[in-house]
């Protein structure tokens, strides 16, 4: 049995120290409650509409590990996904997600870092102005979930990233679990929506399609809360391979979504 948790947070925009503390509190609580894998949304350490704050809230991967290590003690045998602004030694900034593991001895390491490849720069989005573009999509091994692929928001709106992740790895077996993290603002409130924003309906179609087409479990961590009048839709969910919805979080507000899976 493995216990998966999605923490649908509403970070404080640009307040790195406060968000770090919140992450550490969530991690400590999750480990105390027997959670094996905890997934946070995109840019969970910083908030979304950063604009010129991007360089001010950036961390290297080593810096992220050091910050967590300073604040957390005694965590063992635990994995988490955290969204953050990554700064490289050459001062490039990426919208990144780190898959981190505390081993049985309590040593913390980054198993995998995914840099967002497709930066939405249209409509209400302006990521291409502030972030560099990721260039690779690789699978990696989770101790609890096996072979995984990690995607950030818009990465899931282009066939190439899920396709590459579905073909990557030993014997081209691809990922068995897809972890999608996002910061999706709710929009579209036309008369036919029946309580679910149009943007989230499209997300749900995408997630189910991948779960069905790739015969893989899909974990979707979206955020809640409001920034500058944008209300993030929440609705984080876990979808079983084949497309059955296992659990869905509240809309718009922070929420905690738990699922206990029996994996073969």
């Amino acid at each position: 049995m493995i216990h998966i948790r999605i923490e649908q947070t509403a970070p404080r925009l640009g307040c790195l120290a406060e968000n770090l503390k919140k992450h550490c509190d969530c991690i400590a609580q999750a480990t105390a409650e027997g959670v094996n894998l905890l997934v946070f949304p995109e840019l969970s350490l910083t908030g979304y509409l950063l604009k010129d704050l991007v360089p001010e809230v950036a961390l290297s991967v080593d810096g992220l590990i050091a910050e967590l290590g300073k604040r957390l003690d005694g965590i063992q045998n635990f994995e988490t996904v955290i969204g953050f602004v990554e700064e490289t030694p050459g001062h490039r900034f990426y919208n990144s997600a780190a898959f981190l593991r505390w081993d049985p001895q309590g040593k913390l390491e980054a198993v995998h870092v995914h840099r967002k490849i497709y930066l939405p720069t249209y409509g209400l989005f302006d990521e291409g102005r502030y972030f560099s573009q990721g260039r690779t999509a690789r699978t990696f091994d989770s101790k609890f979930l096996g072979r995984c692929g990690l995607l950030i928001c818009e990465d899931a709106w282009h066939l190439s990233v899920p396709l590459l992740l579905a073909l990557d790895g030993p014997n081209q077996e691809g990922a068995g679990t897809f972890i999608v993290i996002s910061n999706s603002p709710a929009r579209g409130i036309g008369g036919e929506t029946q309580g679910v924003p149009e943007s989230l309906q499209t997300w749900e179609n995408l997630l189910r399609t991948y779960a069905c087409l790739l015969e893989s479990m899909v974990l979707y961590a979206n955020r809640g809360g409001v920034e500058d009048g944008l209300t993030f839709s929440g609705g984080s969910q876990m979808v079983a391979a084949g497309g059955k919805l296992l659990a869905r979080a509240d809309f718009f507000s922070p929420d905690t979504l738990d699922y206990t899976a029996r994996l073969a």
Binding site: G191, P197, T231, F251
Partner: peptide, 19 residues
């Protein structure tokens, strides 16, 4: 021009409270 009033209300109430 029809809207899902329940959805609009939920979003706007959240937005006012948070902002």
């Amino acid at each position: 021009l029809m809207i899902d009033a329940g959805l609009a209300k939920a979003m706007l109430v959240t937005m006012i409270r948070e902002e």
